[in-house]
Simulated assay, not measured.
Amino acid sequence: MRRIIDQKVLFRDLAKPWLGPLLSLMALFLLGACGYRITEGWDWGDCLWMVLITISTIGFGEVEPLSAAGRVVTILIIGGGLVVVQLTLQRFIRLFESGYFRRMSELRFRRRLRSMEDHVILCGFGRIGKEIAEELQYEGVQVLIVEANESSQKAAEAKGFNVLLADATLDETLILAGIQKCRSLVVTLPSDAANLYVVLSARGLNSQCRLIARAESEEAANKLKLAGASVVVSPYVAAGRTMAATALRPIAVDFLDLLAGSQCEIEEFLLSSDLNKFKHLNNPTLAGLELGSKSGAMVLAIRDGTSLNTNPSGDVEIGPGQLLIALGSKNQLLALRRLLEDVLSNVGRVKY
């Protein structure tokens, strides 16, 4: 409620500088029209039209030949128009120098932020953040970057990203970024302490949000997991594993790279923990539900607790709390989601 009141006050303050010029212009139109009405006896439409072409210097010519009194009115309108234009230009210059238009741009940006949902919040636009943002942009995912450094903000905006210039460790920043409506939050700040602080704040604001954090050390990774991070990634460990996998299984690594650049996606479907949602299923097996034939997507694995069933057969049953991992195009995964919508958890989906 307080934010709504503050926004109304901000909007009123932004609109206030234009009241003077607008009221002056309206008064000039009204007085000029009244002058023509009195001196020439024209109807109000002709009077207002004459004032318009006089102030704008369009030069269409007079509606009708003017009397001497009408010419005096015209001279006064021209003089008044010059004064109003001059005052408006001076006001425009003062507003520009005071940062008025920057505040207007910030207001429009905040309105756009309020309309964002199912997006990814990326804290930090360093080397790793840049790669993440570009990959998400390529995949067509809406991204909001939170960055405290102005040079990094300009670099991100130059690439077409929405950037919130603020401190990601503050609760009000995460709320403004839409932590309650986002798909996930990725933290790539250069400091482990800052990453830990963001994860703690985000977990407190949205207990269901998927949090991915960067860690420079094993100790920091353990603390981030204790703080509530869903996934903790060490750039050095990830790079080492990728290089080792490339040396041992190059075809598999190439397949993942091809997958990232294709129309196919891997998506998780978290099933509800409510047993009652499964009672209406006559045959809760993969074959009985015909998930593959009806959607075209492929169920790659089913995680049930700590066990992982890869390449499950058709007689495997789905149940409460399971996590289905499927591969397919966007349309196929959407069709699969519709087939499972009655038994899905309310936790947002995650794509890779």
Results as ranks from 00 to 15, higher is better:
D13E: 15
R183A: 14
E106T: 01
I53A: 10
G79C: 13
P320T: 07
A133S: 02
T285E: 07
D167W: 09
D13Y: 10
L324K: 06
L30R: 01
E219Q: 09
A239D: 09
V63G: 12
Q7T: 14
Q90H: 08
S293Q: 15
E290F: 10
A247G: 14
Q332N: 10
I5T: 06
E317N: 05
A133R: 02
L258S: 11
V299W: 09
S313H: 08
V72M: 10
G292S: 13
V350Y: 04
Y100H: 12
V120S: 12
N162C: 11
D118K: 07
I121L: 05
R210C: 09
V233F: 00
L28P: 13
T242Q: 08
V199G: 00
V199K: 02
G319Q: 15
V316M: 10
G288V: 12
Q90S: 10
T242H: 07
R127K: 06
L185G: 04
Q86N: 09
F92A: 04
E97N: 11
Q180E: 12
G321D: 11
F11H: 11
L259D: 10
T310G: 07
C47R: 04
V232I: 04
R241M: 11
Y197P: 00
L226V: 09
R214S: 10
A155G: 04
L258K: 11
E341W: 05
L174Q: 06
V347F: 09
L170Q: 15
T242P: 00
M50L: 13
L256H: 15
W18T: 08
G240D: 06
H280K: 05
S307E: 01
V120E: 03
A177T: 07
K223N: 12
K225I: 13
F96A: 13
L339F: 03
G129A: 08
K223D: 12
R214K: 14
E40S: 10
K294Q: 13
A168Y: 03
I53R: 13
L300G: 05
I325C: 10
M26R: 00
R91H: 03
V231E: 04
N283W: 04
L52D: 10
I38E: 11
Y100T: 03
Y352S: 11
E135R: 06
M104H: 07
I53N: 14
S272C: 03
V186F: 00
L275M: 14
T246P: 02
K279Y: 14
G228F: 04
A15D: 07
Y197H: 13
A220Q: 03
F96P: 01
L259Y: 03
G70C: 00
D274E: 15
I77S: 00
S345I: 00
N311I: 13
L66S: 00
G160H: 10
M298H: 14
R94C: 01
R214P: 01
Y352E: 09
E106C: 00
A260L: 08
Q90A: 13
F101E: 00
A260T: 02
R210S: 05
S152D: 10
L205N: 06
G20S: 07
T188Y: 01
V232G: 05
D46N: 09
L19D: 04
E134M: 13
F101W: 03
L189K: 02
R2Q: 11
Q263D: 15
D257T: 08
L144V: 07
I93D: 01
P21N: 05
M116K: 07
P65K: 11
E117I: 01
